[in-house]
Design a protein around this nucleic acid. Structure first.
Length: 356
DNA sequence: AATTTCCCCAACCGCGAAGTT
DNA sequence: TAACTTCGCGGTTGGGGAAAT
């Protein structure tokens, strides 16, 4: 009942904390603990409301706060937990020692969420969203600009590795597809409600294999229903493309201004956040893992590599100085992610949790 | 070099739940 | 049981730094 009268209008300070205020708060809590946040600021000699003090302490001053970049495993944990818990930031934070809900929330909104959207994955439901991917508009833009870069970005491969024949096929395919796309989108949106409910069911299944299989079937159905031509053509094209793959990848990767993030794998109907087989050898071709079955088996490219945050890596997100070379860092990421954080491990954690 | 735009994140706000009287 | 207080959560904002023009 009733709301706490938040920060007094009379004279209580707001805004950024000064080092002096931090010191006062820290000193006070170290001596007396933090029992009553309402009376604490007065006792500590701070012109702040209790709420502000609590926030400052829990999000910044607490000694067990782990500051700095999120590690790969932390990021993967966040994604997995979010797929189960949704925006329960405090619950997610409870599984990430040293991280605050605020920090995780910020990180989600500024990094992970955007990346999922670029991949055509709904960050709310964690399901494939072809409408978010918006193939036709991306391709239209690419074709309008006659840009090979854009097509290669869509395909998730380096420009120099894009088969010109594939570009030509995609061009003709999508130009006819554009006309149909609007109607299909309308049908697709109607489908989204159903899909959302299905996803909720998936979350309740709490079994990765069952959930993945279920999700795969649903997404396959959507792809087949709404984009049959796309599916068929791309499968054909990529099969042809893969036959030439050895030749393409045998060339040394040229350096480029493009960053790792410029390449967005195509989310196909069977996707995974994780790396593929874990059988890692030298990898230079960026390819959706689902395509690995029709390509060279060494060419798996895990989504983990795409998901890996730039802030987790030594290279800034949009650094133009970054050459396109995933063979070292992403190799490690993929290898790492394929080995860890399997859904059942998360589930084990959650089974003992209080919020399920 | 100056200005504008973009992006990140610390901090705030409002609400509901839990606790207390 | 109702009224009130306190706490914690999730959504949102805006200041400041970085990047782009």
């Amino acid at each position: 009942m009733g709301r706490a009268p938040c920060c007094d209008k009379n004279g209580l300070k707001k805004g950024p904390w000064t080092p002096e205020e931090d010191q006062k708060l820290t000193d006070y809590i170290q001596k007396h603990g933090y029992g009553n946040w309402r009376t604490l600021p007065k006792n500590a000699g701070l012109q702040r409301c209790g709420k502000s003090c609590r926030l400052r302490w829990t999000n910044y001053l607490r000694p067990d706060i782990k500051r700095g970049r999120f590690s790969f495993e932390e990021e993967e944990t966040i994604i997995q937990l979010h797929s189960i818990l949704g925006n329960k930031w405090s619950a997610i934070a409870g599984r990430l020692p040293g991280r605050t809900d605020n920090e995780i929330k910020n990180y989600w909104n500024t990094h992970i969420r955007k990346r999922l959207l670029r991949m055509g994955i709904d960050p709310v439901t964690h399901s494939l969203r072809l409408d978010l991917l918006d193939l036709s508009s991306i391709l239209s833009s690419s074709l309008y600009n006659s840009s090979q870069i854009n097509i290669s970005r869509l395909l998730g491969v380096h420009p120099t590795l894009v088969n010109p024949e594939l570009i030509r096929l995609a061009t003709s395919l999508m130009s006819s597809q554009c006309d149909q796309n609007q109607n299909q989108n309308q049908n697709y949106h109607a489908h989204q409600n159903v899909q959302h409910h299905q996803h909720l069911q998936i979350n309740q299944i709490c079994n990765q294999q069952e959930a993945e299989q279920f999700q795969y079937q649903q997404q396959q159905q959507i792809m087949d229903q709404h984009h049959p031509q796309v599916v068929e053509q791309f499968q054909t094209n990529f099969t042809n493309f893969s036959n030439q793959n050895d030749q393409w990848q045998s060339n040394e990767m040229p350096s480029s201004n493009l960053t790792q993030e410029d390449y967005v794998p195509i989310p196909t109907s069977h996707y995974s956040y994780y790396g593929g087989s874990g059988n890692n050898s030298d990898q230079t071709v960026v390819m959706d893992p689902s395509l690995s079955s029709v390509t060279n088996s060494n060419n798996n490219f895990g989504f983990a590599s795409v998901l890996s945050t730039p802030s987790s890596s030594p290279t800034p997100l949009n650094s133009n100085s970054t050459t396109y070379n995933i063979s070292t860092e992403d190799h490690e990421i993929e290898s790492y992610c394929s080995e860890m954080l399997k859904f059942d491990q998360i589930q084990d954690i959650l089974d003992g949790g209080e919020f399920m």
